[in-house]
């Protein structure tokens, strides 16, 4: 185990170093998703014919996934609450529940995509579908990354170690949730 430098434990800004870094990470993610969504939005407004393509998306699958992510966010914040109370085991259990949510999200997503690809809507089927797979794909990559990190954090939390990380991964997870909150109306409801 690496000995942490003194620098890591200082906090001239009044905020713990890890949390500060997570917030900067989120700021950098905002501009990545912002680039995709701003591009999508201006194309979508300039191309009324994309509405026809959008009408083939499955609102119920999108809504179910929103529900799954909202619930996983709840368990992530409950994990944080448990960690604040020093109960690492409970925090780890909530984190595993969140990971379960991530898996459910991905399973629903893969059924949905399999169905759509089966109908012939692929990346090459025109502007809407390109953006649809691009935006949801980048988001799904973040879900996978978040789930992997969460398993790692939970493994430490179970032994009551590095409990502050439970909050950090939670903040990241809520951000992934917020991105989906915007993707849902943009890709599924606007028809």
């Amino acid at each position: 185990m690496m000995v942490k430098p003194l620098a890591t434990n200082r906090s001239s800004s009044g905020m713990s170093t890890g949390k500060l870094a997570v917030w900067w990470l989120i700021a950098s993610e905002i501009v990545i998703f912002g680039g995709v969504l701003a591009s999508y939005l201006m194309f979508r407004l300039g191309h009324p014919e994309w509405g026809a393509a959008a009408s083939h998306t499955n609102t119920w699958a999108g809504a179910l996934n929103t529900m799954v992510l909202l619930t996983s966010s709840l368990s992530a914040v409950l994990a944080h609450q448990a960690a604040e109370q020093g109960d690492g085991k409970k925090a780890a259990r909530f984190l595993y529940f969140t990971v379960l949510g991530a898996l459910m999200f991905l399973v629903i997503k893969s059924f949905e995509w399999t169905h759509e690809i089966g109908l012939g809507f692929t990346l090459q089927s025109g502007g809407f579908w390109s953006f649809y797979y691009l935006a949801a794909g980048i988001h799904a990559a973040h879900v996978i990354a978040g789930a992997i990190i969460m398993i790692w954090v939970a493994a430490y939390a179970k032994r009551n170690e590095e409990l502050q990380r439970v909050e950090y991964i939670g903040i990241y997870w809520h951000f992934v949730d917020i991105v989906w909150i915007f993707l849902f109306p943009l890709l599924y409801i606007a028809k």
Binding site: L74, V77, G170, I171, H174, D177, I178, I181, F182, P185
Partner: peptide, 15 residues
């Protein structure tokens, strides 16, 4: 509503 939801998550879950 998306903005309201995002606001709630940012304020209450991300603190």
């Amino acid at each position: 509503i998306a903005f309201v939801k995002a606001y709630l998550v940012a304020m209450k879950f991300m603190h």
